[in-house]
Nucleic acid binder design. Structure first.
Lengths: 218, 218
DNA sequence: TATCAAATTTAGGCAAAGCTAAATATTTGA
DNA sequence: TCAAATATTTAGCTTTGCCTAAATTTGATA
């Protein structure tokens, strides 16, 4: 079954919301995720239900079926493999890849996907530290913690970021924060919970509370 | 200006027909090229005219404007660079690339295009021997001849093929004909103009008249 | 339990890009 | 030159995927 880009995007949105803990997803959440009108979601959700890619009921919301899950995780796999490819092979920076990958993830070619995966050596994580689902949809989960919850004095490693927007990633670049970078939490400011962190002996920077919630560390 | 895939495909079609000699292109020809209904072409041609990507008049047909030409040749450039990339870097065969490139050519990212071009070493020809327009739309033209017009006894080199369909390319593979391959025309069959050709001292094969019209040699 | 807010659906619309069938133009060639 | 063939356009319809505005349903709470 060949799906439209829009259909794939809905499945991806439901998949992402599922991973955030929600077993069942309501229309409003999908609408917010995709920044479209809830009324539009009603229609599409009905269509996806008819195609048996999700099961939907007014009371319980939407849940991916086995087939819906397969397609959603494949789309995420494509997105993250393309991002990795762009960074590893084509000199893109991590703040440049998202929008292009949003387009590339809809290209239909199993061979293309397999060959990119092979070329990259079957990577497990993308340039933002997000796990890449394998061909069966399985992925390596890392039990990371938002930097905002780390105790003063701790030394941690950045393993992923919770916001792939160019704006946020460029902010991290400017602050000197990168994937696998080592941080030491020097001070937690009592008045706003913002952090003073030391970056691998190089320098110290202040990070806003909001930023710290989106930096995941171990 | 961001164009839809459909708009890009129309421009590409007009561009291709232009290269076949027609300065002006009529709706019927566009409809045939894209296998859509002429009535649909009327609408789109009007739209492209309004956007100043073509100039259209009922009597003279369609002609690309400077901007239309720029976009069309960029789209062709993308298509051919992707085809080359797939063959050179991702183990695709020449009969597997067309359909995927039809999708990839619509990805919007100048950086992506430039990096692919750089990675490939600024290739001048794609896997079918078609010239790749440079960033200014210029391309190397080779004055080739269809094999169907070659005299008996001549020794020639295959430089391009005029049909990128998987069916035709696989036929050529089976016959042992590849780009840059050397052929000797042994006999022209008088009753149907089909050819007996020798492939670089290896073997002799018969080629149909139709096939010979689509094999270009020097 | 009555009410208010939030979520959902309905109804009606729009733009894109295609279609068919019928009406018009235009060419061509007998 | 006139009729047949070819090309183009019009009119009206379809699907997709979105929209707004106005119900309606649900759920939380006072």
């Amino acid at each position: 079954m060949i799906l439209s880009n829009a259909e794939e995007n809905y499945l991806k949105a439901i998949y992402a919301l599922n991973l955030l803990g929600k077993e069942r997803v309501n229309n409003q959440a999908i609408a917010d995720k995709l920044t479209i009108n809830p009324a539009s979601v009603t229609d599409m959700v009905r269509k996806l239900d008819e195609k048996k890619l999700i099961s939907y009921s007014r009371s319980e919301g939407a849940r991916l079926t086995r087939e819906g899950l397969r397609i959603a995780s494949k789309t995420v796999r494509k997105h993250r493999l393309w991002e990795t490819f762009l960074v590893e092979k084509l000199n893109f920076t991590w703040d440049e890849v998202h929008d292009v990958a949003e387009q590339l993830e809809h290209i239909q070619s199993d061979k293309l996907l397999d060959e990119i995966d092979k070329l990259l050596g079957h990577p497990k994580f993308d340039p933002h530290g997000d796990p890449i689902p394998d061909a069966n949809g399985k992925m390596t989960r890392i039990h990371s913690t938002p930097l905002s919850e780390i105790k003063e004095g701790s030394k941690v490693k950045v393993v992923s970021v919770g916001d792939n927007s160019a704006a946020f990633l460029r902010y991290l670049d400017k602050q000197g924060i990168s994937l696998n970078g080592i941080l030491v939490v020097k001070e937690i400011q009592s008045f706003d919970q913002s952090l003073l962190v030391e970056i691998k002996g190089k320098k110290e920077v202040f990070l806003s509370t909001e930023a710290c919630k989106k930096i995941f560390v171990v």
